[in-house]
Every structure is written in C-alpha cells, then in structure tokens.
Amino acid sequence: MTAEPILALREVTMTFPVRRGWLSRPAVLRAVAGVTLDVRPGEVLGIVGESGCGKTTLGRCIVGVHPPTSGRILLRPRDGGPLRDITRRDRALQAELARDIRMIFQDPFGSLNPRLTVFDIVAEPLRVHGEGGDRAALEDRVAAMLEKVGLRPDAMRRYPHAFSGGQRQRIGIARALILGPRIVVADEAVSALDVSVRAQILNLLQDLREEMGLTILFIGHDLGVVRAFCDRVAVMYCGELVEVAPAEELFRAPAHPYTEVLLSAVPEPDPRLRGQKRRIVLQGEVPDPLARPSGCVFHPRCPAAFDRCRNEAPELTSRGDGRAAACWRHEVVRSAA
C-alpha cells in the first residue's frame, strides 16, 4: 500500500477570474483549492463529487489543459528515478507528456472531430509524435488498436457520425491508448452512456488497464460505478479533497460527513431499502464558489459541525490505515486511537 506514487499533486490550486460585466473588477473563483494527492502506479483512483466541485478542473490540470495557479504536479519518469516537476509546461514538454498522460472525454459526440475519419482521429497522436511511419504502417497500428477496443478495423474509413455513443467512446479510448500511455484521466467517460453500454465500456477499460498496466484517474459522479470500478476513491467538495480511502472501506464506513451524505443520497436499485435507508437531508446549497465559508467549507451544511469547524479549516490527515479525511470530528477519532 505504500508504493511510490507515479503521479503526485502538491497543494494544487486553480483559480479563474470571473468577470460579471466588462467594467467590473473580476472576482476569483477557486475551482481547485490546495489538493494534495498521491496516485499509485497501476491503481484506478476515483475522484467523485457533485458538479462544480472541481474534479474536472483537477483532471484538466493534470493532463495540461491549463497550468495550476499554484502548487506542483510531479510525475515519476518512465525509467523510475525521482519525481519530476511537470507543473509548468512549454509545448515541447506538453508534447512529451502527451505520451504518458492521456485523456478520455465525457461527451462521445463532442470529443471526435466530425470532419476527420476514424483513421485520422486515431492516427493523429502517432503523427503528431512522429511515430508509425508510412500510411500502411499507420493503418496497421490503427487497425490493431481498433480491434483492441472492440471495433472492426474497417471502421477506420468511416466518419464519427456513423457510430453510436458507445462506439464513439471506444474510438476515443483508442485515441487515448494508441501511444501506450501510463496514466489515463477518464473524465466522466461513461456518464453519457446508457446503462447496458456503460457496463461494456467499463469492462473494456478494466481489460485494457490490466493488459497495458495503466493507471487510471476515473472522474465521475455515479457512486455505484465508482465503487465497482475504482481501487481508491477521493471525494471532493468545493475544490477540496475531503476524504481519500480504499473504495471498499469508503463505501462501507465513510469517514467524512459529506461522504456519508453523498452515499445516503444514492438511490439504490432495491425497493426494500426504501423505508430503511437513513437519508441525511442536507441543509442549504453548495456555497457560492466566489464566497467560500470560513473554517471547514462543509460546515454550514454539516449535520455534525461544532465550533471549531466554523473557524478552523481541517487538513486532510491520514489515519494510518490508508484512509484520510479532512474533518475535525475525524481528528478527534484519531487522537483517541
């Protein structure tokens, strides 16, 4: 459990200026607020939270869409060796990292260029990174990759509009994996799919992960899917990590009150749980990200908040059994242990 991290986030913060009119002074939106997280090689780490919690922004910082405002992102080089700072990237570094860290997108319709054939889409990474050689060699590699994701090789001559959502997602996976990356950031990769197709894609990712030794950051909001698919889970609220734990543990006994609330809200496919399940009804709404509450961000809605929560922000602290939570109540448990 103490494997050296393949990817490490240190106090990563991402803020965006928000203009409310073009003459007004911009406000600062803290989308990600001081996230520190180790990603272990070969694991599937789930990042969950409600919309606007910063999980997508965090994923985008990692793949290099935008550099974080502060904090560091560290990557273990392919040959082992010490962690390398990849926070700030010029284009050359971004291109180099694009072989290692790749992304699978949520929207199976928006993520494929409608004007390119499947061949051009899947072969593009090879071309950009000067691999693959001539057309015939490229076609061979694309065909092999398409077969791996469960598509027939003759699909490469068609355009994305000829495919269904699930098949497009397979094409997106082929594009992400053709360079043999080490880390894949899957941002809500199955959220837009129907139940039956979703299971197909998750199983495919599971197979490919084992075959290619991938580390997957699985960003999602469907807790059932996250439980089934992920080894560890990180819960985000208002840009902060509130709990990190092995999936099994987290779902069995959530340590943070917000995780508890989240789990209690999931409608379970079992009508017998209807009356029995204790649903914790949250007060109020997710706070305006432009006006974060003092102390613990969750305290205004927390059913277990006490005085300290209103004034001091708890750190994400490890409990020693591979679990960590940012909660004063959890702190009490820890000091008692």
Binding site: V63, G64, V65, R91, A92, L93, Q94, A95, E96, L97, A98, R102, M103, F105, Q106, D107, G110, S111, L112, N113, E124, P125, V128, H129, R175
Partner: peptide, 10 residues
C-alpha cells in the same frame, strides 16, 4: 473536447 484533445497532444 476534440480541440482540447489536440491541444493536450502538444
């Protein structure tokens, strides 16, 4: 997303 994908490609 597909423009984003191209940008991430470096």
């Amino acid at each position: 997303d597909f423009v984003l994908a191209a940008r991430i490609e470096g």
